[in-house]
């Protein structure tokens, strides 16, 4: 259920008070402690970071964990730094941290653009990138950007650490490659080659500010030709995805208005679009073509 639908359900149920079910609360003092607490409590436990996806779901009783493990205070997860030719974002970095990070902006401007378009100031002050990726709302902004940035997502669990490419991480409707008792620790994004531009463009639901369609595009232009094109979509289907057909249509071509328009026309082809009372399937597909063109145009500007 996408974030917007929570609100509709709330209105439908005509709820008067919204208090989560009872749960036990633990504040983890380290990532390792959080992992062992998860192992101890099993499927009944949920991680709480900023809480801006989990708490609304708990207030609607859509999610009723018996144990909350608070990782929101872990400094070891809250950082943004350059490491060699990589940008490393701790999973506990808030959207606001990323929106104001010069390191993030200089790696891919779409990172700061997307961060700045998430929810509103209050939401950005609390919500974290790790929480958003783990939640994998089909209308969330970060998944599209992670796909276009070819991000590597670092996970840690009882059996140690592993790294999953963004393209393999998002597996469907609120589904990820996270296994039981695993936690996202960081996101690694390789510095793109010279001549790379990027942009995130989003058509948002005006009250919730979730994406109806969001498109992240990164384009590397060398010798006047698009050498590498990466495009991620959110909001359009039941999960974020790479638009490899649009990427292929522009790769090897000059970044002209005509070429971008022709490639963007392919956006949404073969996709089963979501539909709700904000936007029909047909309208979402139309938006996909329009926002692909806008993101690509801004990326090569």
């Amino acid at each position: 259920m996408a974030g917007d639908e929570l609100l509709i359900l709330f209105n439908y149920l005509n709820c008067k008070t919204m208090i989560p079910n009872k749960f036990d609360y633990h504040r983890a003092s380290s990532v390792d402690e959080a992992i062992s607490l998860m192992a101890q409590h099993g499927m009944d436990a949920k991680l709480l970071a900023g809480g801006h996806s989990l708490l609304p779901a708990m207030k609607l009783r859509l999610n009723q964990p018996g144990v909350l493990i608070d990782i929101g205070r872990l400094d070891e997860l809250r950082y943004i730094k350059k490491e060699g030719n990589e940008l490393v974002i701790g999973a506990g970095a808030t959207h606001d941290d990323i929106a104001h990070s010069a390191a993030a902006r200089s790696t891919f401007s779409m990172l700061s653009e997307a961060a700045d378009l998430i929810g509103d100031v209050q939401v950005r002050n609390k919500g974290t990138i790790g929480g958003s990726l783990a939640h994998a709302d089909p209308a969330a902004d970060w998944p599209a950007v992670m796909l276009a940035a070819n991000a590597q997502i670092e996970l840690r669990g009882p059996n140690g650490a592993r790294t999953v490419a963004a393209a393999d991480f998002f597996t469907g409707f609120f589904m990820t490659a996270l296994e039981d008792n695993e936690i996202i620790t960081a996101i690694r994004i390789a510095e793109p080659p010279k001549g790379t531009g990027s942009s995130y463009q989003k058509f948002m639901q005006p009250a919730s500010r979730f994406a109806i369609v969001g498109c992240a595009a990164a384009v590397t232009v060398d010798g006047g030709v698009c050498q590498k094109v990466s495009i991620g979509f959110t909001g359009l289907a039941d999960g974020a995805f790479r638009a490899s057909n649009v990427e292929a249509a522009l790769t090897g071509k000059k970044p002209t208005e005509e070429n971008i328009a022709a490639a963007a026309q392919l956006a949404g082809e073969g996709v089963m679009p979501m539909s709700d009372h904000f936007a029909s399937e047909e309208y979402r597909l139309h938006l996909a073509r329009v926002y692909a063109a806008r993101a690509l145009t801004a990326a090569v500007r």
Partner: peptide
Amino acid sequence: AVKSCTMLAVQ
């Protein structure tokens, strides 16, 4: 600034 309806007192 935060929205206090979406934050637990324990946080």
